[in-house]
């Protein structure tokens, strides 16, 4: 079975970025996204780009994996650029190719928008590349904790996420088993018209759903038998701790923000 599909994009490793607290990473990403929208000069963009690429290199994740994460959005990045280039007409005409005028302002706008896009996607993808899904779940639970006061079901949300993570591989194994069983009876999932293929999926989906419901019911009973009564008064074995490296990361990031703001026009 394809393991990489199960755990998403996560590439296990021991780099500094891997070892940062997941909350540190999420918070830095959050503020990075905001900062990107404040950049407006060559220097501020240069600083953010250097920071993003530097961080990407520091993860020591092979660049091919990083590129794979960007793949679905390359198209959007290029499309944004071209759209600005050809459609909007602002500023002076820079040059003309075969009678088609290129405007200076459009070129700059197209380039900065694409760059912003690129920076956002690159930087956010570093989270999923260096952080396991369960760590992200823990971080979300911890960061959303204050929302408990307004009765937001933080614990339940986190539990749902972690149980889904737990059962995705199980259900995939089962789907594979069922599809093999159906294939051995002559069901063809690969050829034929879309309609044929859709109807071939049904005998796969129905047993899968039936068993998922049965699993859910049994799991709920097992959890109850093991004393689960909701998040109240519960302790946790997985713990998140901010270490010195997290504070250093925050401090360094503050400098990056300061430099970006300082070089704005």
């Amino acid at each position: 079975m394809n393991n990489s599909m199960i755990i998403g994009q996560y590439v296990p490793g021991h780099s500094l970025i891997h070892r940062l607290d997941p909350r540190t990473k999420i918070l830095i990403i959050f503020f990075f996204v905001i900062t990107v929208f404040f950049a407006n000069s060559v220097w501020s963009y240069a600083i953010l780009t250097a920071f993003a690429i530097g961080t990407a290199l520091a993860t020591r994740v092979p660049l091919s994996f990083v590129a794979k994460g960007l793949k679905p959005v390359w198209f959007l990045i290029i499309f944004t650029f071209l759209l600005h280039l050809f459609v909007s007409r602002q500023g002076d005409i820079l040059f003309t190719v075969l009678g088609f005028p290129f405007y200076e302002e459009s070129l700059i706008q197209g380039a900065t928008l694409s760059l912003r896009f690129f920076l956002l996607i690159l930087f956010t993808s570093l989270l999923t590349l260096t952080t396991s899904p369960i760590e992200i779940t823990d971080a979300i639970e911890s960061l959303l904790h204050p929302l408990k006061r307004i009765k937001f079901p933080v614990h339940e949300l986190a539990l749902m996420m972690s149980i889904s993570l737990r059962f995705i591989p199980t259900l995939m194994q089962e789907a594979e088993k069922i599809s093999k069983a159906q294939a051995s009876r002559g069901v063809d999932f690969r050829t034929g018209s879309i309609k044929d293929r859709m109807s071939a999926i049904i005998p796969l989906l129905i047993p899968l759903f039936v068993s998922a419901f049965k699993r859910a019911e049994e799991l709920a009973m097992a959890m109850e038998a093991r004393g689960y009564q909701g998040g109240e008064g519960r302790t946790k074995i997985r713990e998140l701790v901010f270490y010195k490296k997290d504070y250093s990361a925050f401090l360094f990031f503050l400098l990056v923000i300061a430099a970006t703001i300082g070089t704005r026009m």
């Binding site: 369960i134 097992a222 004393g227 008064g233 519960r234 302790t235 946790k236 074995i237």
Partner: peptide, 23 residues
Amino acid sequence: NQFVGTTVRDDVAFGMENRGIPR
């Protein structure tokens, strides 16, 4: 259908977590 945790350690701890046992 009774394995709750994402790892063996998490699963063994589940019942203790429910009882509020210190980490």
